[in-house]
Design a binder for these strands. Structure first.
Lengths: 194, 194
DNA sequence: CGAAAACTTGATTCCGTTCAACACATGTGG
DNA sequence: CCACATGTGTTGAACGGAATCAAGTTTTCG
């Protein structure tokens, strides 16, 4: 309902990987609650207000109202699409592109949730959080952010991000918004009445 | 219906990331067909036989028979769980662990599909495919496989994989099968009648 | 049988890590 | 409201794991 949360998993060597950042309006934990066994952790990033929904109620809802069930299924599909892009990001892009890519993603996602604009938004992740989302060290994230800033692509004061040149940042970050399936989100948020 | 396929995405720098390998029995392309826009590629790994199902029929089926719809939703959730683990694998494990982890995953998944056993299975991926799944180069995959072999953890002749010591391999690969949600698969494959 | 694909090996390079120290902000209890 | 502790961000130097480049060899398959 308010605040930010994230999902992550910790490897045996102590490394942590963050998979997703969630904001107000997101249904955060469908995965762990619908499948019986949890396979990852959900954690608050800031102080948050949450609404708890019993897993059973979700299952019931999906059964009783197929369209709602379908909407939740779609949500899961979009979720998976974002996971895929993050895997690509972590696996096949260098630090510079990875970092730029993440910034681009939030420049688009936060406005959809009514939080900031494409060129100015607040993202309460520390550099260590960023490191764990990008599979880098916080030291290298720091250097990479500085590099992007000195190139005039972004500015940052504390946790406020300003995107100076989105098009250029998108090019650097090899960013293509298709994977976010934003059209789908619009549709769910503002359903057509028929 | 037979053969192997995989899903992947290509970054702007030419790097390819493989997300998943599919085998007979898998519903491969729910993601691209249910969401309207494709955000990744599906490709045959071997000669394959496939059954084509119109997206509309799937949507209809999900709407008309909620339990089937639910089953497909669960499938998507498990899919996403595997993506998460792969992200962790690529992001936070070194080449040795990554490679061992992949071997472990298939040692469990292939038997479920009735293809080989935990200790002996055929996986028709070239080292280049492995490289793109593990976010390494094929050169490094080659060296890593040799290392695992010389440690006596696996053997390999062509595409046949023999797991000598699963427990040890699982330790090296930081492998915990929870993310596969195999109990769930069992349930779907052999549904209870009531 | 011959060409292409896949695999192997060695030498070198580089991106990101590691380690370590320090600066600055944040916040809390006394 | 200060004193102190902790968390976060910054910087530098050295190291290392995997990439790159290049040249083989072996396998596959038409």
């Amino acid at each position: 309902m308010s605040g930010y949360a994230f999902r992550h998993k910790v490897a045996g060597n102590g490394g942590r990987q963050i998979f997703s950042i969630h904001m107000k309006g997101d249904v955060v934990d469908l995965h762990n609650s619908i499948l019986r066994r949890a396979d990852h952790n959900v954690q608050a990033l800031t102080a948050i207000d949450v609404a708890l929904i019993p897993a059973l109620a979700i299952r019931q809802l999906a059964a009783d109202r197929p369209l709602v069930g379908q909407a939740m299924w779609y949500e899961t599909l979009v979720d998976a699409a974002i996971f895929r892009e993050w895997t690509l990001n972590v696996g096949r892009r260098d630090a510079r592109a990875r970092t730029a890519h993440l910034r681009c993603e939030f420049a688009l996602r936060l406005p959809v949730a009514g939080l900031g604009s494409q060129s100015d938004y607040v993202l309460p992740m520390t550099q260590e959080h960023l490191a764990d989302a990008l599979a880098l060290t916080s030291v290298h994230v720091n250097r990479t952010l500085q590099a992007l800033q000195s190139e005039g692509l972004i500015e940052r004061t504390k946790r406020v991000v300003r995107v100076i040149d989105f098009a250029k940042l998108a090019r650097v970050g090899d960013f293509d918004d298709r994977y976010l399936h934003l059209d789908r989100i619009q549709e769910v948020r503002r359903p057509r009445r028929n």
